[in-house]
Design a protein around this nucleic acid. Sequence first.
DNA 1: TTAACTGTTGATAC
DNA 2: AGTATCAACAGTTA
Length: 249
Amino acid sequence: MPSIGRILRGKSFTKIERRGKLLIFQVSEGKYFMLVHLKMTGQLIYEDGKQRVVGGHPWPPLDEVLPNKYSHVIFHFMDGSTLYFNDLRQFGFVRLVDMQEKARVAAAYGVEPLSRAFTWPAFRAALANRQTSLKAALLNQSLIAGLGNIYVDEACWRAKVKPHRRADSLTEAEFRRLYQAIPKILSQAIRYGGTTFDRFRDSRGQMGNYTKYLKAYGRAGKACRRCKEIMLKEEVAQRGTTFCPKCQM
DNA sequence: TTAACTGTTGATAC
DNA sequence: AGTATCAACAGTTA
C-alpha cells in the first residue's frame, strides 16, 4: 500500500464515524479510511487562522505553539488550516486502511450500547457465561463497544453490583439493572460533555461537565452518594476500580 | 529518589 | 477459545 501521505494528498475527509473508541475518517469516495485511536492521551487539534479546537487530552498550555514535541502527525489542509495528532504517551495511532480492512476492524467490536442492536438478549449473550470479572468483561471491547474505566465503574455503581464479581455470577435482576444502567450512564455523560479531569477537552474544545455527576470514579474515601458508606478503590482487571462496599453487592 | 498512578488495548502465554 | 498478565510511554503525584 502506498504511503499515507501519498494517498491523502489532494483528498478530503468526507465522513467521520465511530466504532467503540475508534474514529473512522472516510477519505474522499471511500476507497480508503483513516483510523484514529486516542488511547489514553491522544488528542486531535484543529487550527485555522482564527481558532484552535481540541479534542482529547491533555490540552497544551494556552500559549503552547504547535507543533510541539507530542505532535506526531500533522495534516495541512488546502485552505491553510491544520490538524495535529498529538499524543504524550504515544499509545494512540493513525492508520490508513482500505475498505476491507476497515470492515474487518469494525467487525471485531461488540454491540454499540447506544444503538438499537443493544437489546436485552444481545446484552445477556455478550456477558453470560463469562468466567472473568464483570469489570474485565465490560472493558472487553469485543463484547460491548466503547466502555472505558470510568463508565464501567459508574455503570456498576448504578446497577448496585461490585465490579469484582464474576460476570457469570450475576442474577437476572442484576443483569437487568446493568443493562439499563449502561446506556443511561453513557447518554448522560455525553449530554454533559464527558468527564473532564486533567485538562481533557471534547471535540469542540469544551471541558466536560460530567465530573460533578460521577458517583464512583474519583470518589474513593468519600461517602457513597446512595448509602453514605465510605467508597473504596481496589485493583480489578488491572485497573483502578472505585466502588461502594455496602450497597454494591 | 523512587515508586505508583494514569478516559487503553494489543501481544503473549497458558 | 477464553482468560490473565505484561508492555508500550511519559508525565504527575505520593
